[in-house]
């Protein structure tokens, strides 16, 4: 890495921060698997690594979900269940239909056909904002920072059940100022967690791409969801921060939140996910524990096959 050569020129506090992160990482490694990871592994023991397999306690369950764009079938999922309290990774080549699947189940796109349920409730024709209120929140692959709101306002927007959001109560500050204050405290904690406190009162539009990724995640957590769907949360985030993000994701899982994660970095996936689902051309071609997936023939064909043909082209 070229960054290493410049390391001696880095600010001392940046170096300190980095060392601190390395310490955190070591500590995590030393502790071994966390309570949540153990719980997730136990829940998933005995679940066969095959596409569409049933889980003991699914939080999300999709049936026959199909989305066609003209002639192209972007998503065609026969059956998929996501186990509660796990980190489930969605992987697959570009254009495999991962984001489209996210859009469908979160209510941001309408399927050609199919149905799915969240916590046992059929939500397949529900409006997106109602799905979010039920406790299923998603982030976007292309971040959607609310540019002319401050970072703090961005996060505070995520709080649910705000009484000041009704037109009649809005002008009467005393009716909602207490709730606003406690929301603000919670938002500040989240900003601190994602190292965005220094941006607190700046417009979110002044943030870098990576910071916007962090902001989106903080905002989603403000909703206090049962299920978070993160579309490539680590894309464009620097390696040190990626480590701490992974830490946060694991902590969330340990607190009982279910996480579905789209990610391309195989090292990341293998290190944190409890279950991996592989998409290709809209279908679920494989699912299983990370170790199952590593050896799966279909996955190797879909991923490594593509990589091999790419390197061949590079050689020419």
């Amino acid at each position: 890495m070229s960054g290493d050569q410049e390391q001696h020129e880095l600010e001392p506090d940046l170096l300190a921060e980095r060392e601190e992160l390395i310490d955190v990482e070591r500590e995590l490694e030393a502790q071994g698997p966390s309570a949540g990871a153990v719980r997730a592994a136990e829940a998933l023991t005995g679940v066969a690594p095959e596409p569409g397999v049933a889980k003991p306690d699914p939080i999300l369950s999709a049936d026959g979900v199909v989305r066609e764009f003209g002639g192209l079938t972007a998503v065609d999922v026969d059956h998929l269940e996501v186990q509660r309290g796990t980190i489930t990774a969605l992987i697959g080549p570009n254009g495999a239909g991962k984001s489209t699947f996210f859009n469908l189940v979160s209510g941001f796109d309408t399927p050609t056909r199919g149905s799915w349920s969240f916590n046992g409730t059929d939500i397949s024709r529900m409006a997106a904002h109602k799905i979010a209120r039920l406790g299923m929140v998603r982030t976007f692959q292309l971040t959607k920072a609310l540019m002319r709101l401050t970072t703090l306002e961005n996060v505070m927007l995520g709080a649910t059940g705000q009484s000041g959001e009704s037109l009649w109560r809005a002008p009467l500050r005393f009716l909602w100022s207490d709730q606003e204050r406690s929301n603000q405290k919670r938002a500040d904690v989240l900003l601190e967690r994602f190292r965005l406190s220094h941006m607190r009162d700046e417009f979110a539009g002044t943030m870098s791409g990576g910071q916007r990724k962090l902001l989106e995640m903080a905002r989603a957590l403000m909703v206090e969801p049962d299920l978070v769907m993160l579309d490539e949360p680590m894309a464009g985030v620097n390696p040190a921060l990626t480590q701490s993000l992974l830490g946060h994701i694991q902590t969330l899982r340990d607190e009982g939140v279910t996480i579905i994660l789209v990610e391309h970095d195989m090292d990341v996936i293998m290190s944190i996910s409890d279950w991996v689902v592989c998409f290709a051309e809209g279908r679920v071609i494989a699912e299983g524990r990370p170790d199952d997936i590593r050896r799966d023939k279909a996955v190797i064909d879909a991923y490594l096959g593509a990589r091999r043909s790419l390197t061949q082209e590079d050689d020419k």
Binding site: A127, H129, R133, K144, A145, R148, L157, Q162, G164, V223
Partner: peptide, 23 residues
């Protein structure tokens, strides 16, 4: 007020506001 915050978030990005449960 929080009402105005939702209004301004709709101006900035409807989808983001919707993803956070706002009608």
């Amino acid at each position: 007020s929080p009402w105005g915050r939702v209004l301004r978030s709709v101006r900035e990005d409807e989808q983001a506001a919707r993803s956070l449960g706002k009608n």
